[in-house]
C-alpha cells in the first residue's frame, strides 16, 4: 500500500478535458446523423419532386428565414465570446454574453412561433385539408418542413436550457467546493491521517489520525476566490454546451437555403 493515499482519491475524478470534448463531439456526430436521416429523405424527395418543392418554397417567408439565420449566427458569436471572456477571467462579460446568447435563441423561437402560427392559421399543417389538396410533392415538402424545423426548434430549446444551466454555474459565487469521499475506508484506517502539506513538502498542520474506530470520512473544503478565479470545470461545461449550440446553428445553416431559398 502506498503512502500517497491522496492521489488515490484524486484519481477518482480525473478531469480529462480533451476526453470530455471528444465525448461531446461524438455526441454531436449522433445529432448530425439524426438530422442526417432527414436530410437523406429531403434529398430523395427533392430529386423526385423538383418543381413541387420549388412551388411550395414560395409559401415560406424568406425575410423571417433570413432574420432567424442572422439571429443564430450572432448567437454563435456571443457564445464563443463568452468562452473567451471566461478564459480571460472576465466573468461579468462572460455571463453577459451567455445571457445574450440565450436571448437570441429566444428571439429565434419567437419568430418560429409566429411563422408556424401563420402557416397553421392558413390551414397549412400536416393532415390539414388544405394541404392535402396540394400536389404530392408539395405535401411532402411541408411535412419535411414541419419535421425538420420542428426537430431543430426542439434542439434550440434544449440548447437554451443547457446554456441556462451553465449560466447558473458560472454566476454562482466563485466558491470552490472540494468534496472528498474516500471510497475505500480500509485504505486509510490505521495507515493515514489528514494533514495539510505545502508544495515543498512541509507539513503545515495536522488534523486527525484515522484510526480503526473511524467509520466514515467525509471531507468538505470550500475556498472562496476573488472575482477573477473560475472553476475550470465550468469552462469545460461552457465549451461543451457552446459546441452543442454551434451545431444547432450549423444545422440551421443548411436548413435555411433548403427550405427558404429554392424558390
Amino acid at each position: 500500500m502506498s503512502q500517497h493515499t491522496e492521489s488515490v482519491v484524486a484519481h477518482k475524478h480525473p478531469s480529462d478535458f480533451v476526453g470530455a470534448k471528444i465525448g461531446m463531439w461524438l455526441f454531436l456526430f449522433t445529432e448530425v446523423l439524426l438530422f442526417g436521416g432527414l436530410f437523406l429523405l429531403y434529398a430523395v424527395y427533392r430529386a423526385k419532386y423538383p418543381v413541387d418543392f420549388h412551388l411550395a418554397a414560395t409559401e415560406l417567408d424568406t425575410f423571417i428565414g433570413t432574420v432567424n439565420t442572422l439571429l443564430l449566427l450572432t448567437s454563435s458569436l456571443t457564445v464563443v465570446l463568452s468562452i473567451e471572456a471566461l478564459q480571460r477571467g472576465n466573468r461579468k462579460l462572460s455571463i453577459g454574453m451567455l445571457a445574450t446568447t440565450i436571448l437570441f435563441g429566444l428571439g429565434f423561437m419567437v419568430n418560429k412561433y409566429f411563422e408556424w402560427g401563420h402557416k397553421i392559421e392558413h390551414g397549412l399543417y400536416p393532415g390539414s385539408e388544405k394541404l392535402l389538396s396540394h400536389s404530392q410533392g408539395e405535401i411532402t415538402f411541408f411535412q419535411l418542413y414541419y419535421a425538420m424545423t420542428g426537430l431543430h426548434g426542439l434542439h434550440v430549446l434544449v440548447g437554451m436550457a443547457v446554456l441556462g444551466g451553465v449560466l447558473y454555474f458560472i454566476a454562482r459565487k466563485p466558491v470552490n467546493k472540494e468534496h472528498m469521499n474516500p471510497t475505500i475506508l480500509r485504505r486509510f484506517q490505521g495507515a493515514a491521517r489528514l494533514a495539510v502539506i505545502s508544495d515543498n513538502g512541509n507539513e503545515l498542520g495536522t488534523v486527525a489520525r484515522i484510526d480503526e474506530d473511524v467509520r466514515n470520512i467525509d471531507i468538505r473544503i470550500s475556498y472562496e476566490h476573488g472575482e477573477k478565479r473560475f472553476d475550470p470545470r465550468n469552462l469545460i461545461k461552457l465549451e461543451n454546451s457552446a459546441l452543442y449550440w454551434h451545431l444547432v446553428d450549423v444545422i440551421w445553416i443548411f436548413l435555411f437555403p433548403l427550405f427558404y431559398l429554392i424558390t
Binding site: 449522433t30 445529432e31 448530425v32 446523423l33 439524426l34 438530422f35 442526417g36 436521416g37 432527414l38 429523405l41 419532386y49 400536416p126 393532415g127 392535402l132 400536389s135 404530392q136 410533392g137 405535401i139 411532402t140 411535412q143 419535411l144 414541419y146 419535421a147 426537430l151
Partner: peptide
C-alpha cells in the same frame, strides 16, 4: 441515430399525421 430518426418518424406518422413514408401522401 439513423434508426432513431426513422422510428421517430413512425411515431409522427401515427400521432401527427406527418406521412413522410406514406404512399397515400406522396411518401
Amino acid at each position: 441515430p439513423v434508426v432513431g430518426i426513422t422510428l421517430l418518424l413512425i411515431i409522427l406518422e401515427r400521432t401527427l399525421g406527418i406521412g413522410i413514408f406514406d404512399p397515400a401522401l406522396g411518401g
